[in-house]
Design a protein around this nucleic acid. Structure first.
Lengths: 212, 212
DNA sequence: TTTTCTATGTAATATATGTCACCATCCTTC
DNA sequence: GAAGGATGGTGACATATATTACATAGAAAA
């Protein structure tokens, strides 16, 4: 399977064979719901291409973006749920078209001991997810909305590779767990400050505000 | 080792022997710093008795409480750091006197394959830590300070087993990442509402506000 | 007791964010 | 082109939280 070439460097051939054999290749279109609140988790996704976003909601239905998963990343949170057949606390949506391999939880477990490279991969994945969650906590707890908004736009730029971000103010407000009016106001402020240019459903980041 | 009796039900005798042999029993007094920002992590703590709290700080030094670890819990976030000899992103402080067993990372790894019960324990621990972090995100992102304060007080009550909480307003403000004045104001409001009674360095939760 | 330090109470004020109302614009569909 | 839906702009106002300043009270130290 060509899409797996990245893993060649990571895993031994025998493991790659097993991944090909037991992993289920799945395709999702932009906007598809890959995992939803309350659903049982029976597999761990390894993203081959594209990007998906992971969200959490409160009782009232308000949602907040936790983090993105893109190529060659896995959601180990899903893994840790498999063992006890837990229901999902989060929702995953395809940010753009996504190819992923779903590894059944029985194999997850088996490979952990059979292939040291798998164990390392899983452990690094756990670590990355923790760090992402910590970054999210830091962002919400310590930063004002305008900073969070800039960070959000830059993250989108990084993931898409384009300085033109396609998103409505509604979408942004949802993912930052605030309201559209607030986001429109802050975006207009950023435009007045010369940091961005606003179009309908699009935001262009200006060059002098690249990553520092 | 008597303190380990809880683990008898969880682990096979051979593993308990290894824990006794290779784990290092450590004692910390209330307020001791168990892990600090930027220090290298080489072991995973298993808490035998007492409670420790895990904090994260921002650039300016402001801190926020992430979660507590108490008896029979482990910090798998530490584990996931061991593999790559990462520096800590968090700080851990003994909330009350703490006994813990420090498991060296070489053994962590070895036991994962050798003892299925260890693997299950570790995976459940990963899952619990994720859920705690999600709870923290939810609390900060979706709840007003007064709700977070009540939740904080109830968590302290649960951990200590006492409805009298020993804490200064300064401490609470730090752990909720706000200022003392704000906490004093909200606490006074809660007292006026008949939910708590305030004393110097102590807060008494009233019965009719037990867990619902 | 007097002094000093820590903890707490509270008013006044500033700022950030949330909410509501309403309008204008663009896009799609009929 | 008309109608309706989605998107975005903006003023007015409400509320939550942060900040500053100062007063008081209790505890500890001298």
């Amino acid at each position: 399977m060509d899409t797996l070439s990245y893993f060649d460097a990571l895993f031994e051939p025998a493991l790659i064979n097993e991944i090909n054999q037991f992993g289920e290749l799945k395709h999702f279109k932009e906007g598809d719901i890959i995992m939803d609140y309350g659903k049982y988790i029976r597999m761990m996704p390894m993203v081959i291409s594209g990007t998906l976003k992971v969200l959490k909601k409160d009782e009232t239905g308000k949602e907040i973006l936790l983090y993105y998963l893109s190529s060659n990343e896995s959601c180990s949170m899903a893994y840790s749920c498999c063992l006890e057949a837990k229901k999902s606390e989060v929702k995953a949506i395809a940010e753009e078209d996504v190819d992923l391999i779903a590894i059944p939880h029985t194999k997850l477990d088996e490979w952990l001991c059979k292939y040291p490279s798998w164990k390392n991969y899983i452990m690094r994945s756990f670590n990355l997810r923790f760090l992402e969650l910590l970054k999210t906590v830091e962002s919400i707890a310590f930063h004002k909305l305008d900073d969070r908004l800039i960070a959000y736009l830059k993250e989108k730029q990084r993931l898409s590779g384009s300085s033109v971000i396609k998103a409505s103010h509604y979408l942004i407000a949802d993912e930052l767990a605030t309201s559209r009016v607030v986001i429109s106001r802050l975006l207009k402020q950023l435009e007045n400050d010369g940091k961005i240019i606003l179009y309908r459903n699009e935001i262009k980041l200006l060059n002098d505000y690249d990553y520092s």
